[in-house]
Every structure is written in structure tokens, then in C-alpha cells.
Amino acid sequence: MTLIRSLRRLLAATALSAVALSAAHAEDLTIGFSQIGSESGWRAAETKVSKIEADKRGIDLKIADAQQKQENQIKAIRSFIAQGVDAIFLAPVVATGWDAVLAEAKEAEIPVVLLDRTIDTPDESLYLTAVTSDTVYEGKVAGEWLAEKTAGKCAIVELQGTVGSSPAINRKKGFDEAIAVHAEMKIIRTQSGDFTRAKGKEVMESFLKAENGGKNICAVYAHNDDMMIGAIQAIKEAGLKPGSDILTISIDAVPDIFKAMADGEANATVELTPNMAGPALDAIIAYKKDGTVPPKWIQTESRLYLPDTAAAEYDARKDLY
């Protein structure tokens, strides 16, 4: 029973607290990964995928969960340095305040790779490379798909992420750029759904009412899949068919959106891959083997997924999340 399992996890987590969980067999490389925490499904998936990718390559990945605290991350990095790991992966919880501890790593000649987010520092030599997605590009992929699907003619409602957050700003920017070239594509309503299902549903409910029971709306664009899942429920409750009466396009590619696509209730999603560790591991392996210096920024793919592969993708992902 999951509840019991959860309690066991709670106990285990308390016992292990800081540095924990080493992968099965240690080969030639040991890497320490300071992960932010498990604040979202995506984050949990990133942790799981990282483990899988390391196992695939026979690398010993030590993951430290910082529980959203920078001081825990700094502690973990110092502990990795003391253990003499071959490389350190860091998913930084905030952008600043890393200079001192990364300088320590540099002194110890341990390369650092940033995952998923970058940091603000005057000295870029403090890290080897950063593996992140391009959130502006994600928005652009979404916009281009919709333009193609509707032949450049569509009245769109937009569910924004949390006001002022960088993914919300960038995903809006990319999408706006993509539709700007089509005169008859227009965002008729835009509101924040705080990246959550509940708010996505509530905001969509009001959009439907404000736009003639939804009849004016051609498509809904959501900055993440969770808001879209809420919006899909709202569309259904209004007596319309999501996916046909109103098209949907969102970003992240979490399992539940594939399920919706398989059920014909969603049209497309752009992936924010949880696999940041794969490219990072490859870069480290190459760097250790013959000193190949990777580019300063490794951009992950922002793939578009459509209903045709949804069922298979759902099966592939449901255990990750």
C-alpha cells in the first residue's frame, strides 16, 4: 500500500538526510549530483532519469536532495569535494551565491556541470558547461505547430505560468514571436494559472464564459501541461470537446497529457525533457577521456509530441513521474 510505502520513505529520508543513494556498481567514474529537491513531478522524474542514465553508462551517481535550500546544496558540494568525486552536477536552487563553493571545486580540479538552470557569476570558468532547455524556443515550437495546424488563423486564449517567473515570460515570448507573422492569429485572452491544475481549470472556466461559451475560442495555449489538464476538464464541463472544438497546445510532456492525447482530448505538447543528466554525463565522459571541452551551453531538445505516439509515450513515462 502506497501510504505505508510513503511512511517508510519518510523514515528512510530522515535517516539518510544529506548524502544518500549511490547507484549499483561503481565503475571508473563517481559523480555527485546536488539536486534541488522534489517539489514537482518533473523534478522527481529528473532525479529518476538521472539515475537511469548513470546506470546505463556504468557511472556511480551520488544524489543529495537539498530540500529547496541553498545551504544544503553548498554542504553537499563540499562533501562531494571531500570525497574526491570525479565531477559534480548541480541543479542550483537560486542563481547567485555559488562563487565561493564552486571556486573550491575548481581548486580541487573537479569539473562542475549545471543542470536545468544556470547561475549568475562573473567567472564562467567556475563551471564546465550548463545543460538546460531553451524555454523561449519551447514557446516558439508550440506557436509554430498551432500556426501550421490552423493555417495561420486562430483566436487563442493563453494560460500563463506564475506572473514574473522566467519560464512564463520566456514561453510567452517564444509563442508570441511564432504567431506574430500570422496576421489572423491573435491571443484574445491571457491570464495566469500559476502553473497549477486547479487555477488552470478556474481560469479556463471564466475564459469559456467570457468568450461566448467558448464558441469564440479556436485554441488554448498553456505554459505547462498541468494547467492544460485543468483547462481540458473545464472545457468538458462546458459541454465542448477539447481537442476538436477547442485545440490544445502546452509544454512539458508530463504523462497525464499523453493520456489526454491518447483519449483525443489534447492535441500536442512540447517536451521539457527531464533527461538533463544524459548529455551532461556524455560531456563528462568525453572530457575525462581525452579532454574534450564541451560548449558552454548544451541545449536540450524541445521535441513536439502529437497524439499518434501518445499511448506509447505514456507507457514509457508513467513510471518516471
Binding site: 511512511l7 529520508a13 513521474y321
Partner: peptide, 9 residues
């Protein structure tokens, strides 16, 4: 709550 849901929805 996060432990119960294992961090997912």
C-alpha cells in the same frame, strides 16, 4: 503530503 504522493500529481 509530498511524501504521500511521492512528489507527483
Amino acid at each position: 503530503a509530498q511524501l504521500i504522493t511521492e512528489g507527483q500529481i
